Computed example of a mutant assay.
Amino acid sequence: MSHKIIAIPMGDPAGIGPEITVKALAKQEIYDVSSPIVIGNAGVLKKALKITNTDLAINEITDVEDAKFEYGTIDVISLNNINADTLKLGEVNADCGKAAFEYIKLSVELALEGKVSALATTPINKESLKAGKVPYIGHTEMLEELTNSKDPLTMFEVRDMRIFFLTRHVSLKDAIGQMTKERVHDYLIRCDESLQRLGVKDRVIAVAGLNPHAGESGLFGREEMDELTPGIKAAVKAGINAVGPVPADSVFHHALNGKYAAVLSLYHDQGHIAAKMTDFERTISITNGLPFLRTSVDHGTAFDIAGIGIASSVSMEECIKLAAKYSESFYLVESK
């Protein structure tokens, strides 16, 4: 049985990315649902195998078509940009920042060429990127630029709950200022399109409330009355199955139990807390609005434990599985 090819850029070589990659690929269940290929450095992966005491072979290749996709062997397109023998783990390193970017860049090129179906990304380090003079602060900004995409939309999935974000990395005060009816309307349309691309059929989207009890008809604030509700009504008029605002202390519970296909969280921590309290390790990020599917672990490079061999690969495993799950329907929607 053939599976979708999932590219795994190895991440920052000095972090836990290589370790969780080899640990994840030591699981038969990954190969039962996908054909994974690592974009990274063969020497660093061999070092990670020793650190994690993982018994796998490395198949160093130059193109996707040379991959074996066999359990027990890691296929890796290896870039000669890091000396594994002198690599110091757990430290900010300019060369590692540049290398991490190069892995992502090549992965994107392979996706745009149609050689891989999706990307499942591992952690990169903002300080290392800066030291390496990489002009991006994170994955989203890189992917946006490399694919000429505009304002990619982030979605979290954990168990049966999906969460979108109306605002991202801004202060809470600034986030409230961005909660306009026009933005709510626009984002609900984009959320619905993203769910459609992922093959979700019953696309009921709940908008979380901002104030206690979703404002209680203006008793605890007017944002729901003046901005959120008008934005929701405009989206409904445009054909979107949207409801709310639903009080934030209950909306995520209902989504987790299947009442809603997704929740539009109003600000960063509102959605992050709900997802990570549900299951920290299995919270996976999906970037929508790109020409291809991208999933990502939702944790960092963990320099404090890099090289010890104790990093959990659960999130990486879920990341690859989710990429495989959605890539089956992603292109069916795209081809319409």
Rank of each mutant, 00 (worst) to 15 (best):
Q28H: 10
Y260T: 01
K27T: 15
E318V: 12
E182T: 12
V76K: 14
L210A: 06
F252N: 10
K27D: 14
G97Q: 01
T122K: 00
I58Q: 13
I51M: 01
G221H: 03
E328K: 15
K115S: 09
D249Y: 14
S285M: 12
N83A: 09
P291S: 08
R203Y: 07
V207G: 11
S313H: 15
K336I: 06
I205R: 02
S149K: 04
P36E: 05
S313N: 14
I82N: 05
V246H: 02
D279H: 06
L256E: 13
S117L: 02
L49N: 06
N93R: 06
D174Y: 00
G138C: 06
D186G: 00
K150F: 13
D160A: 10
A84W: 06
N59E: 07
L25H: 02
I205C: 08
L153W: 10
H268C: 07
I30M: 02
E216H: 05
N257T: 00
P247Y: 03
V76R: 14
A84P: 09
G258Q: 10
T140F: 03
I77N: 04
V134H: 00
P123N: 10
V22M: 00
T180L: 12
V263S: 11
N80H: 09
H3I: 10
L56Q: 13
V170N: 10
D151R: 14
G40D: 11
Y136G: 12
K173E: 14
E65P: 04
M10A: 08
H254T: 00
G289S: 09
A24K: 06
M10D: 09
N288Q: 08
R294N: 10
L129E: 08
T301F: 00
I6E: 15
V38S: 13
G271F: 03
K150G: 00
L119F: 12
L210Y: 02
Y31V: 15
E65F: 11
K4V: 05
V22Y: 03
H253Q: 12
L210E: 03
T295K: 07
D174G: 02
N81T: 07
V246I: 14
S312P: 12
S285Q: 08
N41H: 07
V170M: 10
H268V: 10
M10S: 09
E145V: 15
G114K: 07
E182V: 05
K126R: 05
L143V: 07
Y187D: 13
F252D: 13
P13K: 01
D186V: 00
L228S: 01
Y103Q: 08
V251F: 08
I320Y: 05
I74V: 15
S35G: 03
S35A: 11
G11P: 13
G17T: 13
I305Q: 13
M155L: 04
G199M: 11
L143W: 08
G15F: 00
P9S: 10
V200W: 04
V251D: 07
K88N: 13
F101G: 02
V108E: 02
P291R: 03
E193P: 00
V184R: 09
L195R: 02
G90W: 01
P152A: 07
V333W: 14
I240L: 05
T278Q: 07
P123T: 15
L87Y: 08
L266Y: 11
Y267V: 13
L228Q: 01
D269V: 09
A48Y: 11
L322F: 02
T283W: 01
P9E: 12
L143F: 14
V38M: 12
A48R: 01
L79V: 09
